[in-house]
Amino acid sequence: MTAQTLDVVTIGNALVDVLAKAEDSFLETHGIPKGSMTLIDEPRALHLYDAMGPAVEVSGGSAGNTAAGIASLGGKAAFLGKVRDDQLGAIFTHDIRATGVAFDVPHAGSGPATGRSMILVTPDAHRSMNTFLGAAVEFGPDDVIDAQVQAAAVTYMEGYLWDSPTAKAAFLKAARLAHAAGRRISLTLSDPFLVNRYKDELKDFMEKHVDIVFANEEEVCSLYDATDFDTALQCVRAHCDVAALTRSEKGAVIVAGEEVHVVDAAPVKEVVDTTGAGDLFAAGFLYGITNGQSLYDSGRIGALAAAEVISHVGARPERTLADLVAAQLGPAQAKRA
């Protein structure tokens, strides 16, 4: 068996986030659905960029944010995704490597430009994402670095990539590699609109290949056409070994067989921007379970990581999460068990 040298390898869209504050009227004027992720083409991305107010650009993407959070907690993480050999590709590569995450997929020399997500944050802290996937949609089986998947305790897959047929093939390859090496596979459902497009495919993939699933309340209810959370919880527990279900200010519920753990949301003085909350919860939870923590304590680490990221603009932590966890939960949760 390949030796474990990584806690988590994440697979997802390699995107540069362009974040700006906006009023609800801006969303209405430009036909942007509030609180969701909309796929757009490059001309639309350029148009929105010109119309947006002052913006901050930082490497992002859901799985990239999760990898950065794991590194901030002191874990060993790698990211698999696709960028072009252009300016934004260089920004993405520099930023994610600077967080301590390994990113070794070669840049594409042709094809679409590096993807970017235009994120509008309204005064109520909701974020509306307008995403041009660009080169990210070209990610395929040949971009999977076999050795990293085989060496990672968990391979974490971003549901947003499910729109790409080549990425689906890459997911399947990674799942087979991981399980053959005795590792685990994790999937985040990412977005309720995506779930509605592919619910049968996702349920089939979960049942056959996924050990740990992440979803928020709306996503898991959409997956099972459930009218309430408790019904969805009972359905998802039959599809995978562990389900980590987030419920915003209500905290999270971790279910594994007959085990059910309710984790309170960590307090935050002011919710500034919810971008990345689910990504950082996943980071904390995955760090915990790959470093000897219980399901409940892993959920607590996830809640703290999510609280940190919603306290400021941007989807990457602004303070070292290992220090935050040590201060709030004690050093035992902040270091490798």
Rank of each mutant, 00 (worst) to 15 (best):
residue 157 M to K: 10
residue 157 M to A: 08
residue 228 D to G: 01
residue 168 K to D: 10
residue 246 T to L: 04
residue 18 V to W: 10
residue 27 L to G: 02
residue 88 L to N: 09
residue 64 G to I: 14
residue 288 G to N: 02
residue 230 D to H: 09
residue 119 I to G: 00
residue 20 A to I: 03
residue 56 V to E: 15
residue 232 A to V: 03
residue 302 G to H: 02
residue 48 L to W: 08
residue 102 A to C: 04
residue 14 A to C: 07
residue 108 A to R: 13
residue 43 P to Q: 10
residue 140 G to S: 06
residue 264 D to F: 03
residue 151 A to V: 08
residue 232 A to Q: 04
residue 276 G to E: 00
residue 83 V to D: 05
residue 269 K to F: 09
residue 261 H to F: 11
residue 84 R to Q: 13
residue 17 D to G: 00
residue 27 L to H: 06
residue 42 E to G: 00
residue 247 R to N: 09
residue 45 A to T: 11
residue 181 A to W: 00
residue 162 W to T: 07
residue 129 M to H: 04
residue 273 D to A: 03
residue 123 P to V: 01
residue 278 G to I: 01
residue 316 R to Q: 13
residue 155 T to Q: 09
residue 120 L to W: 06
residue 230 D to C: 01
residue 135 A to H: 06
residue 193 F to E: 12
residue 216 N to W: 05
residue 11 I to H: 13
residue 262 V to L: 11
residue 237 R to I: 02
residue 142 D to V: 07
residue 170 A to R: 05
residue 122 T to Q: 05
residue 44 R to W: 09
residue 131 T to N: 04
residue 239 H to W: 12
residue 116 R to G: 06
residue 190 S to P: 08
residue 291 N to V: 02
residue 21 K to Q: 10
residue 337 A to K: 14
residue 337 A to S: 15
residue 247 R to A: 14
residue 65 N to V: 03
residue 334 A to H: 15
residue 226 A to Q: 04
residue 150 Q to H: 11
residue 66 T to Y: 12
residue 291 N to G: 04
residue 185 I to G: 01
residue 81 G to L: 08
residue 336 R to H: 14
residue 312 H to F: 06
residue 282 A to Q: 06
